[in-house]
C-alpha cells in the first residue's frame, strides 16, 4: 500500500496517552523504514474532557505527504478503538475504503462485536484483543496523579511518563502491526515499553476475516 491512514478513537484524558502512543510509534517506525509519515491529534477534539471521544491520526506514504495540513484522516484504512464501548454511538467507519481493518480493545469476540459496527461490509478483518487484561488491569489507577494534570487539558504536555506504550497501547499496537503489516515488527518492537503485553497480544488476537465489498 503506498498511502495508508490509521485513525485511533480513544477516550479524552483518561486514555489520551494510549491513543497518542499508538499513532506516534507507528509513525516513527514508518519514518525509520524510509517512508513519509505523520502523527497528530485531532485538533478540534483536542481540548478534551474526561471520557469524551477523541481521535489520533497517523498517515504514511511512499511519497511526500501533500495533505500534511489536513485536519482529519478522511479515508482511514485502519481504525482502532482504544475502549470497547466506543463500538457503538458514532461512525468511526466513515470514509473507510473497502478492505479496511478494525481493531477493538474488548474481551468479547469478533462474532459478538460485529453487530455493532456501522458499515462492516467494508472490512477485510475485524480484530479483537483484550488489551486491558493483557497490559495490566490496574493501568488506570497508577496513573491517577498524572491524569489529574491532564485534566487541565494540557494535551499531554504535563505527561511525566516518557515511556511509549507502557500499558494498553502495547497490545493494540501488536494487533495493528500483526494484522496489517504497515510497519515491520522488528522496527516497532524496540519502542514498546510493555514488552510482555505486546508479546502476549501477538498470540491472543481474535481475528475475523471478511470479504469486503465496495461501500
Amino acid at each position: 500500500m503506498s498511502y495508508t491512514e490509521l485513525t485511533v478513537w480513544t477516550r479524552g484524558i483518561i486514555m489520551d496517552k494510549e491513543g497518542r502512543d499508538i499513532v506516534n510509534s507507528v509513525s516513527a517506525s514508518a519514518r525509520l523504514e524510509g517512508k513519509y509519515a505523520q502523527a497528530m491529534e485531532n485538533y478540534v477534539d483536542n481540548p478534551d474532557r474526561t471520557n469524551c471521544p477523541t481521535r489520533k491520526y497517523c498517515r504514511m506514504s511512499d511519497s511526500i505527504l501533500e495533505n500534511e495540513l489536513t485536519y482529519e484522516n478522511e479515508h482511514p484504512n485502519i481504525v482502532v478503538l482504544v475502549e470497547g464501548t466506543m463500538v457503538k454511538g458514532w461512525d468511526y467507519m466513515r470514509g473507510m475504503p473497502p478492505g479496511g481493518t478494525l481493531v477493538i480493545n474488548t474481551h468479547y469476540t469478533p462474532d459478538y462485536m460485529i453487530r455493532f459496527v456501522p458499515g462492516p461490509e467494508r472490512l477485510s478483518q475485524l480484530v479483537c484483543v483484550d488489551a486491558a487484561k493483557l497490559a495490566d488491569h490496574k493501568w488506570l489507577y497508577y496513573r491517577l496523579g498524572e491524569l489529574g494534570l491532564d485534566r487541565l487539558s494540557t494535551e499531554g504536555a504535563a505527561e511525566r511518563n516518557k515511556l511509549i506504550a507502557p500499558d494498553i497501547a502495547a497490545p493494540l499496537i501488536a494487533a495493528v502491526i500483526k494484522t496489517t503489516g504497515i510497519v515491520k515488527m522488528e522496527t516497532i518492537e524496540p519502542m514498546i515499553a510493555n514488552k510482555h503485553a505486546f508479546e502476549m497480544a501477538l498470540k491472543e488476537l481474535h481475528i475475523m476475516k471478511l470479504s469486503p465489498v465496495a461501500a
Partner: peptide, 13 residues
C-alpha cells in the same frame, strides 16, 4: 490559550 499554550508548557518544563 489554545493553540499557543504548548509553547508555555514546554518552557515551564
Amino acid at each position: 490559550i489554545r493553540p499557543y499554550t504548548a509553547t508555555m508548557m514546554a518552557l515551564a518544563q
